[in-house]
């Protein structure tokens, strides 16, 4: 018995490890409490910036933050109106099917429910592999850098995200490669997550508008 409680005994070790874990948990819980509010605030700012990006080129004159509908599946629908008439929709949603957890995005739709712009606002995909799906990276050329050509302010392209442009949720089957969606080999899970998110958003919008029409 005395062996077990000695400094190298199993009970001592177990208690020590338990204490370390308890302290670690307490520290993380404190950090979580401290950072909850600032993280939420930072997220709101990011969403507002994202809304501007996906609605670039559309004329609307309502306050988007007041025209929000919570959809059944947890997605948020923002309605852009010009003189009270809806001109575009934006869905903010997330899917849990990414390689590193949730993939969150903003998808704007034209008034006829076709996808306009798709941006990913938060993801945890593997840098260099999965990030080819969500990241929009502008590639400059060395001549531009030397000449100092001013940066193009428009949204950089992305083969996968841009391939959803003009798509509309019809029927019950998700889009596939045959529908022109650009899947990246080596990043299948990330590609599927983007497809999931876009499809769920388009279906949610379709269901919402159908319900409204009734």
């Amino acid at each position: 018995m005395s062996d077990l409680t000695k400094k190298s005994g199993i009970i001592y070790l177990a208690v020590f490890l338990f204490l370390v874990c308890a302290i670690a948990t307490a520290l993380m819980a404190t950090a979580k409490l401290l950072t909850d509010e600032p993280i939420a605030a930072a997220k709101t700012v990011k969403t507002l910036e994202g809304l501007k990006l996906v609605l670039d080129g559309i004329a609307y004159n309502n306050d988007l933050t007041k025209d929000v509908v919570e959809l059944d599946n947890g997605f948020k629908l923002y309605i852009a109106r010009q003189n009270a008439l809806p001109v575009a929709f934006v869905i903010e949603g997330k899917t849990g099917t990414g390689y590193g957890g949730d993939v969150e995005g903003l998808i704007s739709f034209n008034a006829d429910q076709t996808i306009r712009t798709f941006i990913v606002t938060k993801h945890n995909e593997t840098p260099g592999i999965g990030t080819r799906i969500p990241d929009r990276v502008r590639v400059k050329t060395i001549t531009d850098v030397i000449k100092g050509t001013p940066e193009d302010p428009s949204l950089p392209g992305n083969a996968t995200l841009d391939s959803f442009k003009g798509k509309k949720a019809e029927g019950d089957l998700k889009w596939t490669k045959e529908d022109g969606i650009h899947f990246v080999s080596g990043a299948t899970i990330s590609s599927n997550a983007a497809n999931d998110l876009a499809w769920n958003a388009a279906t949610a919008l379709k269901n919402y508008l159908k319900k409204e029409a009734k």
Partner: peptide, 17 residues
């Protein structure tokens, strides 16, 4: 445990501030 706690806290603090 120490390293994982540390990285998680840094992640949260960075995201917030």
């Amino acid at each position: 445990v120490i390293i994982a706690t540390f990285v998680t806290i840094v992640d949260m603090l960075m995201q917030a501030f």
